[in-house]
Simulated assay, not measured.
Amino acid sequence: MQHMTPPNNDPNNIIPPFDLENTTGFNTELAHYQLQRRFDTRVRKNEPLAHHSAFGVGGPADIWITVETRDELIGLVSLCAEEHWPLLLIGNGSNIIFTDAGVRGIVARVIGHEYQITEEANGSAILSAGSGSSWPRIAHELAPLGWGGVEFGIGIPGTLGGGLVSNAGAHDHDLSEVLEWIEVLDARGCNLEGDALSLPITRRYSKDELDLNYRYSRFRSGHESAFDQQGNILAVPRGLIEPAEIVMTLGIRLHPEAPQKLEENLKLYQRERKEYEPINRHTGSIFKDPEGQKASSLIEQAGLKGFTQGKVQVSDRNANYIVNNGGATTSDILNLIKEMRQRVQDKFNVKLELNVELRGA
C-alpha cells in the first residue's frame, strides 16, 4: 500500500468520494469473525438501528460495534481502510435518522467518558474530553467541582464530538464560545481509490480553523442531508470511512464558578428545556432557524403545530420537533418533514434547511 499525505484543508482540494458500489471484499460473516476477535460481544450482526436512534426508527446495520477507547477507534478505522470495509461512525445518534433500508457495512458508535482538567495560572482550566463523552454527564460532574463553561448544554442529549460537528448550542450559547482546540483522526486519505489509499493520521486544529457558525462547522460541509427538486430528503453521501475526519478529543475552556450557582443554572436550564421539549421519542430540532426567524414559529404559523400524520406528529410543545407516537417508520417521518418544509415555503417563501441528518444504505 502506498502511503501519501492527506490533502490540506483548501476547500478547492476536494477528494472524490469512494465508490461504495465498487467496494469489493466486504463479507459480513468474515468481517464479523475478524472484528469479534477484537471487540468480543460488542460486535453484532444485522443490528436494528431503531435500537440506536432517538426516533426509534431505521433498518439494520450489517455489523454494529461499540468503540470505547481511542486506540480501538484508530485500530478500527485502519482495519476498515485496509480491508475496504465501509464504516459509518456515530455518537449518540440524537440528530440522525436512519433509512428504512438500514446501513450497509459497519456502523460504530463511539463512546467513552474519560476526561482530565488542567488548571492554568490565570485561574481558568482546560477540559480535555473524548468525543464520545456525554455532554449532560460532563456538565453534572463539573458543577460540584466548581468548573463552569459547559452547563448550557445540560439538555443536549448528544456527545461532545457530535456537538462540535454541528456547533450545538442552547440558551443563547454554543460550543464555539468555550472550545479551544480539537484533535481528529484524519481518514480522508482512506477514501482515495486504488494504490493512492493511505492510513489515517492524527491532526490537531485550533478553534479558528473550524469555521464555526450557527449550527455549522467545516465538518458538515458535504456531509449534510439536502432536498432534491421534489422536496425529498437525500441521504448524506458516504465515503468508505464516514466521516472522513473523526473528532477524537476536544479542549474546552472552563472558568471557576461557585458550585451552588452552577447547580442552580443546571436546574434552570433543565426546567426551561422541559417546557418545550416533547415527551415521546424525538430527535433534536428538525430545521435550522432561518436568519432573524424561528423555524418553530414559521411551522406553527403554517398551521402544523400538533399536526398528526399517521404515527408521527409535529410536537404540540414546539413545532420544530417531530415525535414518534409508536410504530412509525423512517418513511413516515420523512414524509412529514417534507410536508412541513413545503407548507412553510408556500406560506412564507422560506426554504428551511435541515438540522438533522439522513443516513443509510
Rank of each mutant, 00 (worst) to 15 (best):
residue 2 Q to F: 13
residue 11 P to D: 12
residue 11 P to S: 15
residue 12 N to H: 13
residue 17 P to S: 01
residue 18 F to T: 07
residue 22 N to V: 03
residue 24 T to E: 13
residue 24 T to M: 13
residue 25 G to N: 06
residue 26 F to H: 02
residue 26 F to S: 03
residue 26 F to K: 02
residue 32 H to I: 03
residue 41 T to A: 12
residue 52 H to Y: 15
residue 52 H to M: 11
residue 66 T to H: 00
residue 67 V to R: 04
residue 75 G to W: 09
residue 77 V to G: 07
residue 81 A to I: 14
residue 82 E to R: 14
residue 84 H to W: 05
residue 90 I to D: 03
residue 90 I to W: 01
residue 91 G to M: 08
residue 93 G to W: 12
residue 95 N to W: 04
residue 99 T to A: 11
residue 99 T to R: 08
residue 103 V to Y: 04
residue 103 V to L: 02
residue 109 R to D: 03
residue 112 G to D: 07
residue 113 H to G: 14
residue 115 Y to F: 14
residue 116 Q to T: 15
residue 116 Q to V: 08
residue 118 T to Q: 14
residue 121 A to S: 13
residue 121 A to V: 11
residue 125 A to D: 04
residue 127 L to M: 10
residue 129 A to F: 12
residue 131 S to C: 14
residue 134 S to G: 11
residue 134 S to Q: 06
residue 136 P to K: 11
residue 136 P to I: 07
residue 136 P to Y: 10
residue 137 R to P: 00
residue 138 I to S: 03
residue 138 I to L: 15
residue 140 H to C: 10
residue 146 G to Y: 01
residue 146 G to Q: 11
residue 149 G to R: 00
residue 150 V to Q: 03
residue 153 G to M: 08
residue 156 I to E: 03
residue 163 G to W: 10
residue 165 V to C: 11
residue 165 V to Y: 04
residue 166 S to V: 14
residue 169 G to Y: 08
residue 171 H to G: 04
residue 175 L to I: 09
residue 176 S to L: 06
residue 177 E to N: 00
residue 182 I to E: 05
residue 185 L to G: 02
residue 188 R to L: 02
residue 189 G to L: 00
residue 190 C to E: 01
residue 193 E to G: 09
residue 193 E to R: 10
residue 198 S to H: 11
residue 200 P to T: 13
residue 207 K to F: 00
residue 212 L to M: 15
residue 218 R to F: 09
residue 219 F to A: 10
residue 226 A to F: 08
residue 230 Q to K: 03
residue 231 G to A: 09
residue 232 N to S: 08
residue 237 P to Y: 12
residue 245 E to K: 07
residue 251 G to S: 09
residue 253 R to D: 04
residue 260 Q to N: 11
residue 263 E to Y: 05
residue 263 E to V: 05
residue 268 L to Y: 09
residue 270 Q to N: 13
residue 273 R to C: 12
residue 276 Y to C: 06
residue 286 I to R: 09
residue 299 I to F: 12
residue 301 Q to Y: 05
residue 301 Q to I: 03
residue 301 Q to F: 05
residue 307 F to K: 03
residue 311 K to L: 07
residue 314 V to H: 09
residue 319 A to C: 09
residue 322 I to R: 00
residue 327 G to D: 06
residue 329 T to Y: 05
residue 330 T to L: 06
residue 330 T to I: 01
residue 336 L to T: 06
residue 341 R to I: 06
residue 344 V to T: 10
residue 348 F to E: 11
residue 349 N to F: 07
residue 351 K to H: 09
residue 351 K to E: 14
residue 351 K to P: 00
residue 351 K to F: 02
residue 354 L to Q: 02
residue 355 N to S: 01
residue 355 N to H: 07
residue 356 V to L: 15
residue 357 E to V: 01
residue 358 L to C: 07
residue 360 G to R: 12
